[in-house]
């Protein structure tokens, strides 16, 4: 796990209000276990996981395999750690922005978290997925899926309803985020190399355009 046998070190970060389940979400993802006890995160922490990422080329179905080492930052949701946690936003390439489906307030705060991200992440429009956690508690639910999807659409980010308790959608959410990052990476590298490589290929150009739309400034 700690050896250097991987192709990419990708750093993700989970953020959101206190108690939405960031730690349990990550614990579920890395160890596939669930700990129902609430232990508030002290400032920051991170977990690691090695995954294999399959690229699906735009044209070719045959994907390449990459070994990706994930560093998953877990942050404290509590306000008192705020300045500490935001300092780590810059260290992540992608963000799991979580709220609690059973807490309207945590959902409303998503907006604040978004602006925190814009201010403190490596760029203004980093890759983010919106995650409504605790989907396994339908009777306590306070946030409708429609509401959440609207929010996600507003920011043009994917939305997932997950449950760290059951594992529902947990992997999918992370993989989606990883996919976004890898695509962005592709675009950025492609873009810098197009001038050199005379023949960037038509799809490369498409990528470039997409990147421009996303205001990827690299």
């Amino acid at each position: 796990m700690t050896d250097g046998d991987y192709d990419y070190l990708i750093k993700l970060l989970a953020l959101g209000d206190s108690g939405v389940g960031k730690t349990t979400f990550l614990y579920r993802y890395t160890d596939n276990k669930f700990n129902p006890k609430f232990i508030t995160t002290v400032g920051i922490d991170f977990r690691e996981k090695r995954v294999v990422y399959n690229t699906q080329g735009p044209n070719e179905a045959s994907g390449k395999m990459f070994k990706v080492h994930l560093q998953l930052w877990d942050t404290a949701g509590q306000e008192r750690f705020r300045s500490l946690t935001t300092a780590f936003f810059r260290d992540a390439m992608g963000f799991l922005l979580m709220f609690d489906l059973t807490s309207q307030q945590s959902f409303l705060n998503v907006r604040n978290w978004m602006s925190q991200l814009q201010a403190n992440a490596y760029c203004e429009n980093p890759d983010i997925v919106l995650i409504g956690n605790k989907a396994d508690l339908p009777d306590q639910r306070e946030v409708s899926e429609r509401q959440a999807r609207e929010m996600a659409d507003k920011y043009s980010i994917p939305y997932f309803e997950t449950s760290a308790a059951t594992g529902q959608n947990v992997e999918k959410a992370v993989e989606t985020l990883l996919d976004l990052i890898m695509k962005r990476m592709e675009q950025c590298v492609e873009k810098t190399q197009v001038p050199d490589a005379v023949n960037g290929g038509s799809s490369g150009k498409l990528d470039g355009d997409k990147a421009a739309e996303k205001r990827c400034a690299c």
Binding site: Y8, M93, Y122, R184, E186, C188
Partner: peptide, 9 residues
């Protein structure tokens, strides 16, 4: 390498 170094980031 260029990608792996994540220089874009």
């Amino acid at each position: 390498l260029e990608r792996g170094s994540l220089e874009w980031f």
